[in-house]
Write a protein that binds this DNA or RNA. Structure first.
Lengths: 228, 228
DNA sequence: ATCGTTATCATTATCGATAATGATAATATG
DNA sequence: CATATTATCATTATCGATAATGATAACGAT
């Protein structure tokens, strides 16, 4: 019988995953811009700050590097990575490329729980929007898109998509402080789910592209090769 | 199996970087197919194999994960990742996308040493081909393409390109045992360098796309959106 | 016999201490 | 005064030991 689930978010048990704690805190500060690009992060300082050992900090930094949020160079320390507009444009194009490639495969053989899973995530997104938690909303949004790609059975692309999504979100947040409509962001997934549920590949692809193109306004030149 | 990949890390010195040694040996065995997809890798066993500690092994495994060669899932161990043809096709397209996007930027403001650097790497590739070292050749090839992208000033794309290149090479090696012409592979970079040196964006882009499309024969449908 | 509980095993995560490294400042030498 | 050498500092890399976790097998109760 379960009495309380006080601490742990999803998994049972009660151990404190300090590496994840440090990872999440750093990720948050980088995504929010509290830690500006170029900031130096030294492992021992972070270990002291987070009350954990150096190896644990390195684990977190390695993971941050894998998400593209920091860059680690040999013995010269770790710095918060840049997030330029030129790179953001390419990251959006790359992400569009991956999702556009995967979607037809998903439509061909979607898993039975796909639509239900997506609806559940959308509900969570609405909750996050209500709570005004932009970071949580973005996190669920990433899970949402990765869940779709999962049914494409191209697991090698997942880490790349994840990386692009993190960069997308970081850029969007960095350029939209104050003018954010979280509720609308969550709602924009409705038509995408509907298009996927319809079973029509063409309309799903169109919906996906529109979904991506309307995240940040880069002007009409974001997808020059678009055939729509 | 015997692991002896006691390679120096290219930096001078006299200390043995065991993490790199383990990383290189594992990478080699995965790329060559000696360790088939799905093989389980346990940290403690590897530590015994390589005469190093568990943390060092984890460092190597984390790096392998970042290159997409293994997948690590929570407390359920580490396995050698798959390398299917469908994924390979997408990886080639992704790589084409990145390099095609970067090349115009490179041509606009190439660093003074670009052509010289590329020529030097091509010389190394010829050497590797002479020595019949397909893995070394592939490694230099990756450096070659990353060096080009470096001048595009889009550092966030570099890790993604690297990951694609590793996957490309792994797939190529897995499907070409016995029928490999290393000398020709190295030589195919000549026209690419020449096109870049010419300063003409269009011909450079064309050369790059041709270069990529001829690595592995996927048939005419690799780049359906090609305008050449 | 079936189901739920507990014990065991394999594996990963964490820690603090120590060694190695690169960069920089200080010093000696011509 | 300029230059080469050495000492110092900040930082990352490595290690072995120990704790925590998830999966599985053995066990007992109904």
């Amino acid at each position: 019988m379960v009495y309380f689930s006080t601490k742990s978010p999803s998994r049972g048990g009660g151990r404190p995953p300090k590496a994840s704690a440090a990872f999440n805190a750093l990720k948050r500060d980088i995504m929010l811009g509290t830690l500006p690009a170029g900031t130096g992060l030294t492992e021992l300082d972070l270990a002291a700050h987070f009350q954990c050992s150096q190896g644990t900090v390195r684990e977190a930094l390695l993971q941050l590097q894998e998400e593209g949020l920091v860059r680690r160079q040999g013995h010269r320390g770790t710095q918060v990575s840049d997030c330029t507009e030129d790179e953001a444009v390419e990251m959006f194009r790359l992400r569009d490329h991956i999702e556009s490639a995967g979607l037809p495969r998903v439509m061909r053989s979607p898993s039975p729980s796909l639509i239900a899973d997506l609806n559940a995530m959308m509900a969570q997104m609405l909750q996050a929007a209500d709570a005004d938690d932009e970071l949580l909303l973005a996190s669920i949004d990433r899970d949402f898109h990765r869940r779709i790609l999962q049914d494409a059975r191209l697991p090698a692309l997942d880490p790349i998509l994840h990386r692009c999504l993190v960069h997308n979100h970081r850029f969007k947040i960095s350029r939209s402080r104050g003018v954010r409509d979280l509720q609308a962001t969550a709602q924009r997934h409705r038509s995408l789910i509907d298009a996927i549920a319809s079973g029509d590949i063409a309309s799903a692809t169109t919906a996906m592209r529109r979904h991506i193109a309307t995240i940040v306004d880069f002007g009409p030149e974001l997808f020059p090769g678009s055939q729509q």
